[in-house]
């Protein structure tokens, strides 16, 4: 069973945010969640993933190098350059700053969904 779970690559932050903030089970009618912040971050993530140029520039071009999903061998040079990692690091840094800024501005909230 664990074999099926091993990811084909490490899951990127953008993929994770897009999923955990926007999808998944909601069971609490009175959940204490700051929806303003979730919406802000979700919108920022959407902006990041909405265009192919941006997707490529933040490292979402990994599928081109996945031997299971491409018909040519992985380009070791491109992956080894660390460029993708550097770009991801930059984008994570930006996300952190955006989150800190929105955290500083947030109003106490016990909004319901």
């Amino acid at each position: 069973m664990p074999d099926y779970i091993a990811p084909t690559r490490s899951h990127g932050l953008v993929d994770i945010l897009d999923r955990v903030l926007d999808k998944g089970l909601v069971i609490a009618g009175d959940i204490k969640i700051n929806l303003a912040n979730v919406e802000l971050l979700t919108i920022q993530v959407r902006l990041l993933v909405c265009s192919i140029d941006k997707a490529a520039s933040i490292g979402m071009n990994w599928w081109q190098h996945d031997p299971r999903l491409t018909t040519r061998p992985a380009d070791a040079g491109a992956l080894g350059s660390g460029e993708v990692e550097k770009r991801l690091e930059r984008i994570e840094q930006q996300l952190r700053q955006l989150t800190e800024r929105s955290g500083a501005k947030r109003r106490p909230s016990t909004s319901t969904e």
């Binding site: 899951h11 932050l13 994770i16 945010l17 999923r19 955990v20 903030l21 204490k32 969640i33 700051n34 912040n37 979730v38 971050l41 994570e92 996300l95 952190r96 989150t99 929105s102 955290g103 947030r106 106490p108 909230s109 016990t110």
Partner: peptide, 16 residues
């Protein structure tokens, strides 16, 4: 803590 959980990249990773 019983306060709204402010989303952050670290917390999203922990959740996942």
């Amino acid at each position: 803590p019983s306060a709204p959980i402010v989303p952050s990249p670290e917390r999203a990773r922990s959740h996942d």
